[in-house]
Design a binder for these strands. Structure first.
Lengths: 118, 118
DNA sequence: TGAACATATGATTATATGTTCATGTGTTCA
DNA sequence: TGAACACATGAACATATAATCATATGTTCA
């Protein structure tokens, strides 16, 4: 009787295990979600995103304001663009970047609240 | 006149650059924030966190429900614990994990909304 | 106390990722 | 048209990180 609930076979708590198995995210969503958050997981990208949280900015402004190389900024913006964390518009030679949507802003804000222990 | 605003020296848009320089996150916060998000940036940890979003669970239940090795789960829980994304309580041999705070839950929810294009 | 069990951890290895350097692309304007 | 400029990208290298295997720790109960 007890052994039907042994850890190595069905887990200790059948209810929880079944519930998770039923409601779990599919692999596709899991991957997308982790990719989405992974992009937030770098100090340089956080700086860039926070700058864009303050203002829409062009590549060169970001580089100058944050004291980063143009190349590094451009590479990171590519990552941010690919994951749809930022959007951009072009005006002549200049490309202006900004945060893509409200979710990105909210995630940033929640993160800040978390580290502030609010 | 124009050259005072050359890209390589002061950036194209002085206002934005100054604004960012004034309001930018300090290095400490930037690092903490990126560390916090980095933890979300792995498919295994997302699965674990989503499972904990559904139920409080012990290590073995997580491993069984998600078909992961006990070792892998334990290693990841350590990471999650260190960054204060999950909390735990012990009852005898069994350690129950759950998401640490409301911010963690909100971040997860915002991420899901983002990938669903809500 | 010692066997059984749930969980934690150290070492290793394979892979992923960020930066730099060099160069390419696309736009403006004289 | 071609020089100047803003931005993008490819290759290479150094570092970080996740999974596995083996083993350790801590708790329960007979």
């Amino acid at each position: 009787m007890e052994n039907e609930e042994s850890c190595s076979t069905h887990g200790l708590h059948t209810k929880s295990v079944e519930n998770v198995r039923k409601k779990m995210l599919d692999n596709e969503s899991t991957k997308e979600l982790s990719m989405f958050f992974k992009v937030f997981g770098d100090a340089t990208r956080i700086k860039i995103m926070y700058a864009l949280y303050l203002n829409e900015m062009c590549v060169c402004d970001i580089a100058v304001a944050l004291d980063l190389s143009q190349s590094a900024v451009s590479h990171q913006l590519r990552t941010l663009k690919t994951s749809r964390l930022v959007k951009y518009r072009r005006t002549g030679k200049v490309v202006y970047y900004s945060l893509d949507d409200e979710h990105v802003i909210k995630v940033l804000e929640q993160g800040i609240s978390h580290i502030k222990h609010d």
